[in-house]
Simulated assay, not measured.
Amino acid sequence: MAAVSGGGAHTPSVLVGPIDLAARVDEALAVQAVAFGLGRNEVDVRRHIVLRHLEHPCARALGATTAAGRLIGFVYGMPNERGHWWSTVVEPYLRATGSEDWLDDSFVITELHVHPEFQNQGVGRSLITTITDAVDQPRSILSAIDTESPARGLYRTLGYRDLARQVLFPSAPKPYVVMGAPLPLRRRA
């Protein structure tokens, strides 16, 4: 477990470490719903997706919890496979930018969310660096909404760069960007 110091005077310490995400999926999706603005129907759909992803033998998950055990953030991912739905959607966009090879030998960050009360305190940074430090792949890929946001800023500081922009996922209201970074991720200077 890694400890993350709180950023505010009244913010408790946060512990980052392995969790049984399948057992805590509803808590995790409650965090994602608040952080990402999801409605009940979207949460129900994502619940099935998360549980299906966690069946992958190489899926990894970490949680960020307060000392009292409250789940306030999570990350999960797995080695990328070209046959995965996500890969089939992003592949034409990556091919168009000459970045298609990023789909091979990469660890994909499937989801990373931190409750808004705990954002900008190093929790997301700790989650993503801890999970990628433990993988065998030489690089990591992820997708994020294609807008300038604190999440995109974080990813850039870690070494992620844009591989393809304006990626359209079925039923997603906004375009995404696919980003990639060599591992290990960059640390703060």
Score class of each variant (00 low, 15 high):
110 T>N: 13
177 V>I: 13
34 V>W: 05
147 T>Y: 12
139 R>E: 08
131 I>N: 10
124 G>N: 03
161 R>W: 10
52 R>F: 00
30 A>K: 00
92 P>W: 05
55 E>W: 04
123 V>R: 13
16 V>D: 10
50 V>A: 10
75 V>T: 14
135 V>F: 07
93 Y>F: 10
151 A>H: 01
153 G>I: 01
97 T>M: 02
10 H>D: 07
155 Y>L: 06
141 I>T: 15
77 G>N: 03
76 Y>G: 02
181 A>Y: 09
74 F>M: 03
1 M>K: 11
182 P>H: 15
156 R>S: 12
66 T>R: 07
64 A>W: 02
31 V>G: 01
86 W>D: 10
31 V>M: 00
150 P>R: 11
45 V>W: 10
170 P>C: 11
49 I>T: 14
109 I>S: 08
120 N>K: 15
14 V>L: 06
160 Y>L: 11
129 T>P: 08
93 Y>P: 05
160 Y>Q: 01
19 I>M: 04
102 W>V: 02
88 T>N: 10
91 E>C: 14
117 E>H: 12
156 R>V: 09
173 P>E: 05
140 S>M: 06
25 V>G: 11
184 P>I: 05
110 T>F: 09
177 V>Q: 01
139 R>S: 10
130 T>A: 15
41 N>V: 13
105 D>A: 15
38 L>D: 08
44 D>I: 08
94 L>T: 06
84 H>T: 11
165 R>T: 14
45 V>M: 06
22 A>T: 13
172 A>L: 02
62 L>S: 08
164 A>C: 08
9 A>S: 04
70 R>V: 12
132 T>H: 00
62 L>W: 06
148 E>V: 13
125 R>N: 04
58 C>E: 15
109 I>Q: 09
131 I>T: 02
71 L>D: 03
26 D>F: 07
156 R>G: 08
164 A>H: 04
179 M>K: 03
